[in-house]
Design a binder for these strands. Structure first.
Length: 438
RNA sequence: GUGAGUGUAGCUCAGUUUGGUUAGAGCGCCUGACUGUGGAUCAGGAGGUCGAGGGUUCAAAUCCCUUCACUCACCCCA
């Protein structure tokens, strides 16, 4: 194989290599998420990365299936898809045990998901998504709990109330408004929703133009504008406050106020979410940093999640948080912590004769709970210390022939440059103190 | 899928407008000064078919075409 034929070292388009320095950030983020979900009593699950093509063809959006789904035929000619989202898998898993699972079902997962997209900021072909769902409860308390978890995750990641905001609305209320108040035919609701969804990104004239094309009167357009700008202070006076959807929204808002979480939230009636299956509460989290004004994640309540597989009806509410957008968020806000050094102690090796003794020291430190490496080759000490320094190892242990004769060891603190000679017996305690900064 | 920008050493980049001898800098890496000790200093060194392919030319990192990748904005979402 000549030089031109060597394989490329570049990872597949839209995917990432997680080198150790990336992996520990990812693990740090996932650990915070997991802690939060578990603190609310949620249980972790996972499913296969491959599902039957039909699972997505049935209910995921047309665009997703036709243009973004990775799919192929296996050796037995089964039509297989790589999961682009987790919801159908949860639905399938729940449906398979629908009579066996006590409700509500509180589950979370960290699936990697694939979509054939053109990669850009915040959007790749493979990403990991923190999925949290509560299934089998029609209680509005479930909606509130899910939003609370989303907020608590952000707090646990170090975000404050000036860093992000959760925009909340309700699909049922919007439907009531379009149907009962504006008296619009059902056929154009979808079009109106799309216009609403785009409103913040397009000029006001374009927004009105879209609505006129849907044959809304100028009165209806101005009423819609008024509706969209309602806040939790003045919504009570609006006729939409008589709807069931409003009742749900008000209940959630009150609940969030009681737990002091309303400072992280805002009522935003322009939130509709792109997905069709949402029926009640919908919400999106926005970054407040001016350079990153975008929705980081969203969720909501969907009815009849398991209807595809079962006669039973089961509703749920949940959200998905992408690791790409979350990491962007953390970087912008300076919230990624300096990681703990992966190695705490390095045991130097003076020469071959001392290998057994130095190895024993390393074993001793490991059983005391310290992440310890042992020098493999007795190269000159300058190199050994230099390596330890390049790995940010705070402590280096050295036992040369002189120390060995008296059962002593050198303990060097690389951060303070101080070094002390202690007996082998006192080694573990000395390391403990040195790491604690005493 | 549409549009724009960028590809030169491991990293950050200069050089491209006005083609011209062996393609540069800083940082990093390796070796030594320093044969029982890392961040400093000094002296050396390795590392590049200038993203790839083709064309124009006596001559291409530089001009032209194609292609790939990355970045950003649309679309859509996470």
């Amino acid at each position: 194989m000549n030089k031109a034929e060597k394989l490329s070292v570049v990872s597949y388009r839209g995917t990432r290599d997680f080198y150790p320095e990336d992996m520990r950030i990812r693990s740090w983020i996932f650990d915070r998420m997991k802690e939060t979900a578990m603190s609310f009593g949620y249980e972790e699950y996972d499913g296969p990365m491959l599902e039957s093509f039909e699972l997505y063809a049935a209910k995921s959006g047309e665009e997703l299936v036709n243009e973004q789904l990775y799919h192929f035929f296996d050796r037995a000619d089964r039509h297989v898809a790589i999961r682009p989202e987790m919801t159908p898998t949860v639905a399938r898993m729940v449906a398979a045990r629908i009579n066996d699972l006590s409700r509500p079902i509180r589950w979370f997962s960290f699936p990697n998901l694939w979509r054939y997209e053109k990669p850009q900021r915040g959007r790749l072909r493979e990403h990991w998504q923190f999925n949290v769902d509560i299934l089998g409860s029609d209680s509005i308390g479930a909606d509130q709990e899910i939003i609370e978890i989303a907020i608590q995750v952000m707090i646990r990641l170090g975000a404050g109330k000036n860093d992000f905001r959760i925009h909340i609305s309700n699909r049922r209320m919007l439907t009531y408004f379009l149907h009962q108040i504006l008296d619009l035919p059902e056929g154009i609701w979808g079009g109106v929703c799309r216009a609403i969804d785009k409103r913040s990104k397009i000029p006001h004239e374009t927004f009105e133009e879209m609505l006129r094309e849907l044959e809304l009167t100028s009165h209806q357009i101005s009423e819609l504008g008024r509706y969209l700008s309602l806040s939790h202070q003045n919504i009570d006076q609006h006729p939409v406050s008589e709807s069931d959807g409003y009742g749900e929204l008000r209940q959630i808002w009150n609940g969030l106020s009681e737990s002091g979480l309303d400072t992280f939230c805002t009522l935003d009636l322009s939130i509709v979410r792109g997905l069709d299956y949402y029926t009640g509460t919908v919400f999106e989290m926005y970054d407040l940093a001016p350079e990153n004004r975008r929705a980081l994640f969203g969720g909501g309540r969907y009815d009849n999640l398991v209807g595809l597989f079962s006669k039973d009806r089961l509703s749920g509410v949940g959200f998905g948080m992408g690791d790409v957008t979350v990491r962007d968020f953390l970087e912008i806000h300076g919230l990624i912590p300096n990681p703990e050094p992966p190695i705490q102690v390095h045991v130097a090796l003076f020469n071959e004769e001392l290998r057994r003794s130095s190895g024993a020291i390393a074993s001793l430190l490991r059983s005391a709970g310290y992440r310890t490496t042992l020098q493999l080759d007795p190269v000159k000490l300058a190199k050994q210390f230099k390596w330890a320094d390049s790995k940010s190892i705070p402590i280096v242990i050295l036992q040369g022939p002189d120390e060995k004769k008296q059962n002593l060891v050198q303990v060097k603190n690389m951060l303070t440059h101080s070094q002390q000679v202690v007996s082998e017996r006192d080694l573990v305690e000395t390391v403990r103190q040195s790491l604690a900064g005493d």
